[in-house]
Design a binder for these strands. Structure first.
Lengths: 199, 199
DNA sequence: GCTTTTCCATACCTATAGGTATAGAACTTT
DNA sequence: AAAGTTCTATACCTATAGGTATGGAAAAGC
C-alpha cells in the first residue's frame, strides 16, 4: 500500500502513528469538522508532508476508516462466529457499547460518518454506506442460518432481525455521543437481550 | 417573538415560509453543512434580510428546531398519553418511522443535530442536548407510571426501557438517512414490538 | 405630500477552508 | 565525497465561510 522508498531521505514521522492521530480527530469531530490545520497540528507534521504521505483529505479519511474497521469493528466479525443468534446479538450489543464508550472517542465512527457525510461529496458518502452495507450483510447471513436452524420462536426474517439489531447499536452510538455512560448503555443492551426472541 | 413593525415599509417575504425552507435545509444538510448562501438561495431572500429577520445563523437554527419540534415531534407528546406502555412504544416507534421517511427529508433532525453538532459551538450542542433530554424525561416519567402500574413482566427500570426505546428510534433515523425504506423500518418497529416486555 | 422608518440590493470585510509551488536541507546509494 | 532523491518549511493560491456597511427605494404615519 505504502510505496516505501529505498532511495532518498527517509520520512521523519511514523505514518501509522500519524494515521492513528487522524483517526482520533475524524472520530471526534467528523469529516467536515476536521480541518487540515487540525490534522497537521495533531499529527505533528506539515501540510505538504501530509499530502505526500496520504494524498489528500479524502484518502486520509478512507485510510482512517480502514484503521477503524480493523481496530474497532473486529467484534462484528467475531460476533457472527458465535454459536447462537442470541450469542451473536449479545456480542454485537456489548461490543458496540465497548467501542462507543471504551476510549476517549464517543460513539461509533461509522454512525458518525453515515449521519454526518450524507451531504458531503458523494464519493465519501458512497464509501461509508458501502462499508456499512457489507457489515450488515455479514449479520444478515448469520441470522439466516439461525432462522434455518430453527432458533427463532416467533417467525421473523433475517433482514428484519438484523436491522433491529443494527438500530440498537446505532442508537447506542448516538446516546454515547450525547454523553450516556457505559452502564447506562449496558442497560440498553440488557433490555434488548432480556426480550430477545430466540431461545 | 417577532417584533412586528407598524411603521415603515413592511417585510416583503413571509418569515414562516422562509423558516420552513431553512428547516428543510438544516434537516437535509445539517447545521454546518448549510451555508448562508444555501439558506438565502432557498429562502429567496438576501443576506441582510435574513439577518434582520432572524439575527444570525445560530438563532435561525434554533428557530428551525422549534418549528421541527412543533410540527414533527408532536407524536412524542401524544405517545405518552397512550393507555399502556406497549401502546406508548408503538406510537413512538411508528411515529419515528413516519418522521424519518414521511417527507423529502430523511431521518430525525434531532438525531442529525446530536451527531453532527458535537464538535460545533457549545451553545448549539447544549441546546440540542437539552431538547433531547426533555423529550427523554417525558418518556421516563410515563414508563415509571407503567412500572408502578405493574405493566412489566420482567423487572426493569424506567430509564432503561426509555433508553432502549430511544435507541431504536435513533437507529431508525440513522437507517432512514442511509437509505432504508419505510417498509424496512416498519420491520424494525415490528421486531421490537413483537418481543416487547410488557403485557 | 413630506418625513420617517424600514426594507432590499450590492458590494465588501476578515477568517479559514483545502490544496500547492518553491526552495533548501537531509539522507541513501554509488 | 558526489549524485541523486525525497524530505520539510515557508509562503502562497483560490474559493468560500459567516457577517456587515452603505445607499437608494418603498411604504407607513402625520
Amino acid at each position: 500500500m505504502e510505496k516505501l522508498a529505498t532511495r532518498g531521505r527517509p520520512r521523519e514521522f511514523d505514518t501509522d502513528v500519524a494515521l492513528a492521530e487522524a483517526l482520533r480527530l475524524f472520530w471526534q469531530k467528523g469529516y467536515e469538522g476536521t480541518s487540515l490545520t487540525d490534522l497537521t497540528d495533531a499529527m505533528g507534521i506539515t501540510r505538504p508532508s501530509l499530502y505526500a504521505a496520504f494524498g489528500n483529505k479524502e484518502t486520509l479519511f478512507r485510510r482512517a476508516l480502514d484503521l477503524y474497521e480493523k481496530d474497532k469493528l473486529a467484534y462484528i466479525g467475531e460476533a457472527v462466529e458465535a454459536p447462537t443468534a442470541r450469542a451473536v446479538a449479545e456480542t454485537l450489543l456489548l461490543g458496540s457499547v465497548d467501542v462507543a464508550t471504551g476510549g476517549e472517542c464517543r460513539g461509533c465512527m461509522g454512525v458518525i460518518s453515515m449521519v454526518g457525510c450524507q451531504s458531503v461529496e458523494p464519493s465519501i458518502r458512497d464509501d461509508v454506506n458501502a462499508r456499512a452495507e457489507s457489515a450488515k450483510q455479514l449479520i444478515v447471513d448469520r441470522m439466516q442460518r439461525a432462522i434455518d436452524a430453527g432458533e427463532f420462536a416467533v417467525p421473523t426474517s433475517a433482514t428484519a432481525i438484523t436491522r433491529y439489531l443494527l438500530a440498537l447499536m446505532q442508537g447506542i452510538s448516538v446516546q454515547a455521543q450525547s454523553g450516556a455512560s457505559r452502564s447506562e448503555l449496558l442497560e440498553v443492551a440488557e433490555s434488548a437481550l432480556l426480550s430477545w426472541p430466540s431461545r
